[in-house]
Amino acid sequence: MSRRRFLETVAKSGGQSFLFGSLFVNTALLKLPQAGADAKSRAEAEIGKGVIYGFVVDTTKCIGCGSCVRACRAENNVPDGYNRTWVEQYTFYPDGEVFVNSPNGGEDGFAEALPTRNRPSGAEQAPMRGFFVPKLCNHCIDTPCIQVCPVGASFKTDEGVVLVDHERCVGCGYCVQACPFGSRFIDPRSHTAGKCTWCHHRVTKGLLPACVVSCPADARIFGNVSDPESTISRILATNRVQVLKSYLGTRPRTRYIGLDSEVI
């Protein structure tokens, strides 16, 4: 149970005892959160409220082909030099060094294998382990980008998708600064903020996002989290998932399987 949920539960159940006499110890405050309460409260929050989209990235499956990046660029006409989604390559060496790379966002694949490196001692060392991590907008529940937009040009739809109104955006760039994940940019053609929309124009027509369709490794899973029977709900119910920069409290809706601590 997250701290927020805990406090909300406390506020709900504790209201009455506070009403009838705050002199008595509020029993709800002393109750420890029970196992499974998090899943339950998440279900309560999301099930039965219509369609709420979610996204799961399975980093253990990603092969780093860059299909998602290419599909996204073509589908959404993303300007050169900017990315709505990108793939990062992480390579670990025995001495603890980590190399992170994302040439052109991974759009042209990762053709060059990282060479063996020389240790300071002179001895060669081959990489120890490595993996790919696809990234995209986290469509946070408590989004810092919508929070800072001065004109109300950034907003969240009922399905939890964070969008930009290109007719009202003034192009100040504050949302770009406020996004902890580097998901936003100012489109040099429209001078307004650009970002991943989870292919809102596709998913509202019953199609999957372009990156999900094009992924040959099933590393990207998209679906309706308020439907307990959906693929994504089953994956969320049976996996340990992580989010990026959870300490910032933005509560991302994009969740990761197999996230390494070096991924920030």
């Binding site: 589908e75 109300g152 907003f155 009922d158 109104d165 809102h200």
Partner: peptide
């Protein structure tokens, strides 16, 4: 339609949804 649902222009949602999918499957 600004502020009908939240602090945004409601038709911006349909503007976005109106885009044509380019990948046909």
């Amino acid at each position: 339609d600004f502020g009908v649902k939240g602090h945004y222009r409601l038709s911006a949602v349909s503007d976005e949804a109106a885009r044509e999918p380019r990948h046909l499957g």
